[in-house]
Amino acid sequence: MTLDKDYRQDLLVALRLHEISGERVGEVLAEVEAHVDETGEDPVEAFGTPREYARQVAAQLDPDTGKPSAVWTLGAALLVGALTLLGVTLLADGIGAVGEVSYTMRDLVTTLVVLVLAGGGVLAIFRAYASGMRRAGMIGIGVTALLLITATEVLGDLLLDDRTALLVVPRWFAIAAGAVLLLGSAGMLVRAIRRGRVVHPVSRSNGT
């Protein structure tokens, strides 16, 4: 008996949502495949549902064996989001400006709050899925994050100064800074992709 493709795919996704390294994911998948091939046992009976087994695997890991801490994961996600958001904003403002580029209190505060809410919302949804939460609960998290972001924009217009420039930079600086931030974000994403690449033990032993 061979491992069902749907079970394999669901297990892969569940493991990745626990921030387990691609190398360890490949090992777990190979172990499950080998067990099913040898015994013919249903994977759900042998290991439980993909979400259940992924939680068991994650509980046995620490940062040294392929699972980064929640603090590191949250920090990295927020940093990538911050670099991307600020990079796009600076680059677009610099390209569209005629002279200098200025930012008000509203611009600075709302950008920071939206960044935190968006990053926290995405991470919360991933965590909810990995823990087995029902779809309605995950949708509720997403809707709540969107409502808070909308409220931030509305309150920013009502309560914060959007006329007085607190930060003024030359057009060339905005463009250069935006490009540098986007390059930094891309570098972090490439590193995360390489770390998360699933590698089957057989492929690794063959040097591929």
Rank of each mutant, 00 (worst) to 15 (best):
L160G: 05
R106P: 03
L166R: 11
G119Y: 03
T104N: 03
A34D: 09
M133F: 08
T73K: 05
V101W: 10
T65Y: 13
V113Y: 05
R204T: 02
I175V: 14
I125P: 00
G184E: 02
S205T: 09
V32A: 00
D6S: 15
A14D: 11
L123V: 12
P68L: 06
V32T: 03
A130M: 04
W172H: 12
M105H: 02
T152A: 01
S102A: 15
V44R: 14
R106C: 10
R16L: 15
L166N: 04
L12Q: 06
G22P: 03
E38M: 14
S21V: 08
A54G: 06
G96M: 15
L166M: 10
T39S: 13
R163H: 13
R171M: 08
E100N: 11
L158R: 15
T110E: 05
L167F: 11
L148I: 04
M105G: 15
Q60V: 04
D6G: 10
V169T: 14
E41Q: 11
G22I: 13
A54T: 06
T110W: 00
V32G: 03
A58T: 10
R191I: 06
A130Q: 05
V44A: 12
A177G: 05
G207F: 02
D42I: 12
A77G: 01
E100H: 09
V199A: 07
G99C: 06
V32C: 13
A34V: 13
L3P: 07
K67H: 07
G75K: 08
I141C: 05
R106W: 02
V13G: 00
L29Q: 03
D161E: 09
L117S: 07
A176S: 09
L90H: 02
R135I: 14
V109T: 08
L160V: 13
I125A: 13
L29K: 00
L112Q: 10
I95L: 11
S185Q: 00
W72D: 01
F47S: 00
R163C: 05
S185E: 06
I193L: 09
V116N: 00
R195P: 03
G121R: 08
F173M: 09
H200L: 04
T65K: 04
R191M: 09
L166F: 12
G207M: 08
A118Q: 07
V122I: 15
V113H: 01
H35W: 10
L79M: 01
G196C: 06
S205F: 11
Y129L: 11
S102W: 14
V101H: 00
T150P: 08
L181N: 08
A92Y: 10
V98L: 15
G132C: 10
A58Y: 12
G142F: 08
D157N: 12
Q9R: 13
P170L: 12
H200G: 11
L78N: 03
G26D: 08
P68H: 13
R194I: 02
V57F: 00
E153F: 15
A70W: 09
K67N: 02
G75R: 07
R163S: 14
T164F: 10
